[in-house]
Design a protein around this nucleic acid. Structure first.
Ligand SMILES: [Mn+2]
Ligand SMILES: [Mn+2]
Ligand SMILES: [Zn+2]
Ligand SMILES: [Zn+2]
Lengths: 143, 143
DNA sequence: ACTATTTTGAGACTCATTCTCAATTTTATC
DNA sequence: GATAAAATTGAGAATGAGTCTCAAAATAGT
């Protein structure tokens, strides 16, 4: 268990918001594993233990987690919005298989530094990288 | 005017499909300019001249244009699906301003070759690159 | 012209996300 | 620890981009 609670609470206080029970439950469930997630999956997981947390609150809490830099949107090319931890994870890019859905995570220092360079040239301030590709994984190629 | 018509017709024939009037109108409107587009904008533009092309047909034709490699989906991080020409355009990445919506296009040989290298290492066959960033453009930074 | 096949427009439908609002919870004040 | 003001919540309605359905229209082969 990291200190996401600390980070989140500090953020909430700075905005005059409160670390309520539902927000705590959502935060803890989000950080119970390190996988990519979407709202539906998160909702099911939360509901197994806490029958009283609503979809609406999940949808309302996620932007707060994003704003506090604990998570970020990722896998932008899928149908539903997906998210992943920012806190405690190094930068990486995704190779997504269009056949089986497999997601390969790859370290991306080089790619990002190039993007940084290009952004600098255009005096553009990057807030969120979006680097990756869709295609066919090795297993699916052999079919 | 390029020969997108040729490319499209060849693709359609290869699939046993026909280059009908609505499909021609859609193709020509898509290639009348070189900008990114989404279905709503395209629909409005088409409707100014042709009151008889439906949204449904536009939604049905776009995958055909994608399949024939004339266009591809892009700007994956926006709310609506956006597309841009593949035919007649070199590869590039996008820096998208979250304040004003400005889109900066940047040549990306380096970034892509790095992604290609990483994909090769994982024996992953890339079909579509997705490289870019969101942030704040230089004008919007000065506010 | 006749028929089989494809395509189309209109609008119904889906489903992820956002919004609304009354009820509940939280914090501040006494 | 009651009381009141403010923030948050759950339930479900609303939204809206994209998909699907189906009867009518266009097309191609005979
Ligand atoms: Mn993690
Ligand atoms: Mn073009
Ligand atoms: Zn695969
Ligand atoms: Zn801007």
């Amino acid at each position: 268990m990291g200190n996401e609670n600390f980070v989140f609470e500090r953020y909430l206080i700075s905005k005059g918001l409160k670390l309520t029970k539902p927000r705590k439950i959502i935060l803890n469930t989000v950080f119970a594993t390190h996988e990519h997630f979407n709202v539906d999956g998160l909702y099911d997981k939360i509901r197994k233990k806490h029958k009283d947390v609503s979809r609406a609150t999940i949808y309302r809490t996620i932007p707060l987690l994003v704003e506090s830099s604990l998570i970020k949107q990722s896998l932008r090319c899928l149908a539903k919005d997906h998210y992943e931890h920012t806190y405690g994870h190094s930068r990486h890019l995704h190779l997504i298989c269009e056949k089986c859905g497999k997601i390969i995570e790859v370290e991306s220092k080089e790619a990002e530094s190039i993007l940084n360079k290009l952004a600098k040239k255009h005096d553009f301030k990057i807030r969120e990288f979006n680097i990756g590709a869709k295609g066919i994984c090795n297993k699916c190629q052999k079919k």
